[in-house]
């Protein structure tokens, strides 16, 4: 006879604000998967929890810090990166992660994103890309594919999307990778890797937004989007030797590869404020 095993305690309990559950995310949303990967990476990082700080802007993904049992800051829309820079420069011993969405980081916060990468300031960015503004009900965003339907592009998106890995590689990030919410081990591994990698790191995670992006674009639900990821994800080891940077542009509606992998892993001098004395 089988017995149900009820765990009294989950290893990640201490990292989640359980008193804030249930969360606000829709059924089929991919954000929680990535949050779990982040929590797991913190647990395995060997860095004391007290030294992890998480910062976000506004949007669905930006709610992650509110659910993490860490020092957490939910800043103005688009501004988590400068907020994180302020914290990091005052307390360099902290591991400061920005956990936010593509609209927050690449549209309203786009200027901060490219300048932080240019400076190579030691901030870890996890960017959930769900191809639309989810929180406000599925509007066109900076990553929405050309032609895709959203509530503000009812006739199809007339604009080209950002190709985020290409943008971040050009701007100077020392580590750039992309995965989908199907790639939970790779996401966790790359978050762990980024904690140890000095400088500006950027991990893009493609995530289903079945309500905001999926529904108007004929992706039935979150599971179907995961099937798309499984069918079409293609690992790339070297860009542009294997595929050109331009090929990293994503359009879920077309039967072409979604390239994933570590696209950039390089060394550049990390931004340090000028110091003439020891900190006094």
């Amino acid at each position: 006879m089988a017995h149900a095993l009820v765990a009294e305690k989950h290893p990640l309990d201490d990292l989640i604000r359980r008193d804030r559950m249930p969360h606000i995310w829709c059924p089929g949303c991919g954000i929680g998967i990535v949050m779990r990967c982040y929590a797991q990476a913190i647990l395995e990082s060997g860095i004391p929890v007290e030294r992890h700080v998480v910062v976000s802007g506004i949007g669905c993904t930006a709610r992650v810090p509110g659910y993490m049992n860490l020092d957490s800051y939910h800043a103005t829309h688009g501004r988590p990166i400068p907020f994180a820079i302020g914290i990091k420069l005052v307390k360099p011993e902290l591991t400061v992660t920005v956990f936010s969405g593509d609209g927050d980081l690449a549209a309203i916060g786009g200027n901060h994103l490219i300048h932080a990468a240019r400076r190579n300031v030691d901030i870890k960015v996890i960017c959930i890309n769900n191809f639309n503004y989810g929180m406000t009900g599925g509007q066109v965003g900076p990553t929405t594919p050309l032609g895709a339907r959203t509530t503000t592009t009812p006739y199809g998106n007339p604009e080209h999307p950002f190709n985020l890995p290409y943008l971040l590689a050009a701007a100077g990030a020392v580590f750039v990778s992309r995965w989908t919410t199907l790639h939970v081990r790779q996401i966790k591994q790359d978050i762990l890797y980024s904690f140890r990698k000095p400088g500006f790191t950027f991990i893009e995670v493609l995530a289903p937004c079945p309500v905001g992006f999926g529904r108007p674009n004929d992706i039935e639900d979150g599971v179907e989007e995961m099937r798309i990821y499984r069918r079409r994800s293609q690992l790339v080891y070297r860009v542009p030797e294997e595929v050109p940077w331009e090929a990293l542009e994503v359009d879920l509606r077309e039967e072409r590869p979604i390239y994933v992998g570590r696209f950039v892993d390089r060394e550049r001098e990390v931004f340090q404020p000028i110091r003439l004395t020891s900190k006094g």
Binding site: G78, P82, F83, A84, G86, I87, L89, V90, N111, H115
Partner: peptide, 21 residues
Amino acid sequence: VFIQMEDEIASIVAVIGASAA
């Protein structure tokens, strides 16, 4: 720490972050 930011929005937000630390 002195840092020249990319705009005034980043400046005030970095200041708030620094103060939070």
